[in-house]
């Protein structure tokens, strides 16, 4: 039974990162652990970087994780996985949505978006496992592009010694009833994707 976990969820404003992190925090509480989570709102959300720290332990102190101590980095966007890599503990796990969202610095031509291969190589340089997930196409396949965060949480649930049903229940408690079915489908697709897509 898991009793201590540092998670870092990152992505771009509008991707549903904060909702997903709320659910991951609730799961920790449902498992009987102390939980804290922390994020920054406001200016950062206008298409900027979003980060949310989630910590489970018998007793949690700091609401944020220390650099080099994150067990699993869950990135909703390719570039953001690279940006936050220093928080991952060496040998940790990265789950990364293969979606790419172009920053304004790239579209105005002052910066270059790195190649996917270069990003994956950087991730593999620190992580023991990198799990790329095509969350957006899978969410569309499930029936709603807004289920990206359910896909990502489902992928995460396959890595932990927790009952996947705890995750699914926490998700369904959070989404409106009319979206329950599409989220159930998304959850299955996310689980399958994670199980079939690991690069060591």
């Amino acid at each position: 039974m898991i009793d201590k976990l540092n998670l870092l969820f990152v992505g771009v404003g509008g991707q549903g990162v904060l909702t997903a992190s709320d659910i991951a925090a609730q799961v920790g509480l449902d498992l009987g652990l102390d939980v804290k989570k922390s994020e920054v709102h406001g200016f950062a959300q206008r298409g900027g970087v979003v980060e949310s720290h989630i910590r489970w332990a018998p007793r949690v102190g700091s609401p944020t994780c220390e650099e080099g101590t994150v067990d699993i980095l869950l990135s909703f966007e390719m570039l953001e996985a690279a940006r936050w890599l220093n928080f991952l503990k060496p040998g940790g796990i990265v789950i990364v949505n293969r979606q790419k969202i172009t920053p304004m610095s790239v579209s105005v031509g002052t910066a270059v978006y790195p190649d996917e291969d270069a990003i994956l190589a950087a991730l593999k340089g620190r992580a023991s496992r990198v799990i790329p997930v095509d969350a957006l196409p899978l969410a569309e396949q499930a029936g709603n592009p807004r289920t990206v965060n359910t896909i990502m949480l489902a992928a995460l649930s396959t890595l932990l010694e927790t009952d996947p049903a705890v995750w699914e229940t926490a998700i369904l408690r959070r989404v409106p009833a009319k979206y329950a079915e599409v989220n159930k489908i998304a959850f299955r697709l996310g689980q399958q994707a994670a199980q079939g897509s690991s690069t060591d």
Binding site: R46, G48, P90, M104
Partner: peptide, 21 residues
């Protein structure tokens, strides 16, 4: 010691400033 050196220095991560929606 936190092993930040392990992060690939070859990768330049572009900034993602906030923007008007």
């Amino acid at each position: 010691k936190i092993e930040n050196e392990a992060v690939s220095s070859a990768l330049i991560v572009p900034a993602r400033p906030p923007a008007l929606c």
